[in-house]
Design a protein around this nucleic acid. Structure first.
Lengths: 340, 340
DNA sequence: TACCTGGGCACAATCGTTTGTGCAGAGACG
DNA sequence: CGTCTCTGCACAAACGATTGTGCCCAGGTA
């Protein structure tokens, strides 16, 4: 703390209150003379005065902080979301505290409480797991919670997510259009809305070509590379007749690529692959993956807006609390036609 | 703010000071009876009391905040550093505020001041540009600044960076060992220590095989993909006899790959490529790049430690303020022997 | 009884702001 | 000359915690 308002006031020869009002533009309203205002400002400049955000927060009951909790900040998807939120928040004078829940609900809960104690004004959370009680509880206590990416149906919280069902339908259609009928699914975390909606979309696309979904072709328990690898390995071993895989995340797809290589199946010749989400430099990969990618920037932007609106807007409308961002199909080389 | 200490105190039938001391473990030192402590704790529990971090910060002059300023949070390298810092900070009860300077000094300065006003207790900065005056100024005002990745020689600040010179020497040796003698360099931001040290290392490796560095073979002005692309394009056009390129960053290398493709040079057959830094899934790229990769985790970890030590440690030792983290050579397929 | 000691607690200042209110002096007006 | 209305500012109470100090009472001792 270099200098306080009191010092500025003393140097300008006025009281603290006058100094405060002079610097905050409340001069006219409180009949402070132009000359005094100038004196105060000069004093503040000379002292390099920077108001204590802490004191101000205490007095105004406004910390200007947004809490962002993501499962893995090193993951390009979450890093990008965090970045967008940080930029959007900064534009409105807010700062963001990021916390990494390491894909564990236990940590998520702890971090949320920690940030709550810091009186963040709003949360943007990319939740782990399939429990939302703690999130609803926090929202109920007064700090608005915005869910991004992984959302929960009917939980009453503000949500931003992608059009998972439509996206997955499009992805699967890329495969069925090329004649694929036996498609393995490397799913993410079952029970989460993105996962389950994608399963729906997948089933819809299959239904369009007259086949119903075979749940034995669905494997995986998380959005991680490990899950993708293990599931792909198993599926490829159990069902060698599979001609294509649909991975629900980039890590899932990367795991699948490794499993495919080990199984001696080359992509796309012996196995087609389509995925959800994109990754940087995907076009420079050995197998440029066809994908349905999410509009990460837009998700982050929307989430930030919702969070900030929830804070500033006095009337918190709970109506239309869910936003579904459009997905975009990117066709690359990872899909080949089925040979008869 | 659900409930305050005062409410807890009232409910327990004691004064605020007793309540505070009971909850903070100062009971014995202030002769507060066991029974009272229990009453207070019970009251706190019932009310779901969470002390206001803001008030505490004001009183204790300790915000428990660390400011992290990076050029691009969406960049895997910085995302990873941020993550490590966040985890390390959290382990010590600190939280991190991240800010994205968008690769512009102007933003960096603004963000630093903003965070300074928030009374962060320490900074970890991956600076943009080659100016360090503002950083030294802030450090001088009392908030310790730790530089990570891009550091400045002799600036007196705590620094964590990689062994750029040694790393670059190793990288170039990968090329010279395969017979390459005409090596183009796609550099990053000139004037920054990482860049200039890498140039040194490159020169050293060349000297070992008896040739001196040709500065006309060095191009580029930033660590971005655009810089890599443009410089590679130019170098390949001007000097078709180049047999290899050394890119100073992953984005540089990706730009080079695109430029090479456009120039009809395939890697590694017609052009070898080695790079600094790694990227996720690099082994799954079309051209798995040989690289000298930095230990991002360690850099983040060390930076966090230095920052936190600087805060807690009363004696701020300015000695040995620079840490050079080891690099690791990863050989992949992007280098071929020079055919005579 | 007078004195001392120590236990158990309350009071009040403090951190650095913001903001409601009060008070003095100057001029206007009758 | 008294009253009224501005002007221009100072005082002081918050915000929610921490912490130095003071007070009171009980029990032990001389």
């Amino acid at each position: 703390m270099v200098s306080t308002l009191r010092q500025v006031a003393e140097r300008a020869g006025v009281s603290v209150s006058v100094a405060s009002r002079s610097l905050n533009g409340h001069a006219k309203a409180y009949r402070i003379s132009e000359a005094t205002v100038l004196r105060v400002k000069a004093a503040a400049d000379q002292l390099g005065f920077r108001p204590s955000h802490t004191a101000r927060s205490l007095r105004l009951k406004k910390t200007g902080l947004v809490g962002v909790v993501v499962p893995d900040l090193a993951n390009a998807f979450f890093a990008s979301i965090s970045r967008t939120i940080a930029l959007a928040a900064e534009a409105e004078g807010y700062s963001v505290i990021v916390a990494d829940s390491r894909e564990q609900t236990e940590h998520e809960v702890r971090l949320l409480h920690q940030l709550e104690a810091r009186q963040v004004e709003a949360f943007v959370v990319c939740p782990v797991g399939s429990e939302d009680a703690h999130l609803r509880q926090i929202d109920g206590r007064g700090t608005p919670v915005v869910l991004a990416d992984r959302t929960f149906p009917d939980c009453g919280l503000l949500q931003v997510t992608s059009q998972h069902r439509r996206g997955a339908r499009q992805a699967t259609e890329l495969l069925t259009a090329k004649g694929h009928r036996l498609i393995g699914v490397l799913q993410g975390l079952p029970g989460t809305l993105p996962n389950d909606q994608r399963l729906c979309g997948h089933a819809e696309a299959l239904a369009k070509v007259g086949i119903s979904m075979d749940h034995s072709l669905v494997a995986g328990d998380n959005f991680t590379e490990a899950s993708g690898y293990v599931s792909a390995k198993r599926l490829l071993a159990e069902r060698p007749d599979l001609t294509a895989l649909f991975a629900f995340s980039t890590p899932n797809a990367m795991g699948a690529l490794r499993a495919a290589a080990e199984a001696g199946r080359s992509v796309p010749e012996d196995l087609s692959l389509v995925t959800f989400d994109d990754c940087p430099y995907a076009d420079l990969m050995r197998v440029p993956l066809s994908t349905v990618c999410q509009d990460v920037e837009r998700i982050g932007q929307l989430a930030a807006e919702l969070a900030l609106r929830a804070v500033t807007g006095s009337a918190r409308k709970k109506t239309q609390c869910r936003h579904d961002v459009e997905t975009r199909v990117i066709v690359r080389d990872s899909i080949s036609s089925v040979r008869n």
